[in-house]
Computed example of a mutant assay.
Amino acid sequence: MPSSTFAGRNIKYVVLDITGVLKESGPGGGHAISGSIDAIKRLYKNGFQVRFCTNETVMTRHTLVQQLKNMGFVIDEIKVFPPIPAVCKVLSDRKLRPHLLVHPDSLQDFEGVDCSNPNCVVLGDATEQFSYENLNKAFQCLMQLEKPILFSLGKGKYYQEKGNLVLDVGSYTAALEYATGVTAEIVGKPSPTFFGAVLQDMGATASETVMVGDDIVSDVGGAQACGMAGVLVRTGKFRPRDENHPNVKPDAIVDNLAQFVDNLLANMA
């Protein structure tokens, strides 16, 4: 298996965020970031194992992959890890019936999940569905349960959409945590369990893996907490102050995914 000396490590495996790294969000799914399509092809060509780890919950995994393919990306659906399939497995294993506060376009991925007489709440990036009425229903559901359980599909504070920063699911999760006293279980980045599932799928060790993302906390910090190298790109939701974050220090900061791949391939063994 090929490897590269990067950030003082022997890197064999690459995990990539999607929105903000491969593409910018926008109408019809957005557009590919310059150089990112070719960057993925170069990773494949040089034999690196690649997976895609995203907190995307506004659409189904199939729709997301189709959007990427329409932009020109070569990507297999089974190599994309979003939170919804992961939380569905948790719900099944623990025999939980969720009250869902998620985006309508993502509901297809919850097909077959029993939502009758809910005994937990699942919060995704519901965008316009995050009304007072809907948040209050989720709050009331939790308050009525003897042992309330709240799942949050990621815990991002904000992301970039159509050139503007917008509130992410973590902000609404924090409101419900504050109101109910319940600590949410995070399914998605930066959860160690979520990153662990990606590593397991590749048969990878964390020390030989690098995560590339535009979120200094969820992508970079989450990956580093699991033992992976974390690389921050200056695309997507990146802001200059991220380079001097008080708690998270990236192993590298690059202008974009293409520059990261340039650096990785330049140091191949």
Rank of each mutant, 00 (worst) to 15 (best):
F110V: 07
C53T: 04
T193D: 13
A7I: 06
I253A: 06
V212H: 04
V121W: 13
A252F: 06
I216D: 04
L101C: 10
A269Y: 09
V220C: 06
D219C: 01
K41W: 09
T193A: 05
L199W: 02
T127L: 14
L68M: 09
P82K: 02
T180L: 15
H99N: 15
D38Y: 00
I33T: 12
E177W: 13
P192N: 12
D242R: 02
Y158M: 12
T183I: 12
G181D: 06
F238N: 15
H103D: 08
I33C: 14
F73N: 13
P27I: 07
A174E: 15
V198F: 04
V248S: 06
D219T: 00
F130D: 09
N10R: 03
P104I: 01
I149H: 00
V169Y: 11
N263M: 10
E185Q: 15
G20W: 15
R239Y: 00
E161F: 09
L22K: 11
S152Y: 14
C141P: 05
Q259R: 06
A175H: 00
G29D: 04
C53H: 07
E146G: 05
D255R: 06
T235V: 01
F260S: 02
L101Y: 01
N10S: 08
E208M: 00
I33R: 13
M71W: 14
F238I: 15
R234P: 00
L96V: 04
G20D: 12
V80H: 10
K12D: 07
K249P: 07
A179I: 05
E111K: 14
V80R: 14
K45P: 09
A206R: 08
V65C: 00
V113G: 02
A225F: 03
R42W: 00
D109W: 05
S92C: 11
N10D: 12
D105C: 01
P190V: 04
F48A: 11
S36L: 11
L167W: 11
G156E: 12
P250K: 09
V80E: 07
Y13N: 15
L43F: 08
N117T: 13
V231S: 02
A229M: 03
G30N: 11
V212L: 07
A179H: 06
V102W: 02
G72W: 14
H62N: 08
V217Q: 12
G112F: 01
S34H: 10
S25Y: 09
F194L: 03
G26P: 03
A175D: 05
A126N: 13
G203M: 01
L176V: 13
H62A: 08
V102L: 09
L123H: 01
S152N: 13
R94H: 10
G30K: 08
F130N: 12
E161S: 01
I253N: 04
L153Q: 08
E128V: 15
E146F: 10
Y172L: 15
F48C: 06
G154A: 02
R241E: 14
S171H: 03
D255V: 05
G8Y: 11
D242M: 02
V15M: 05
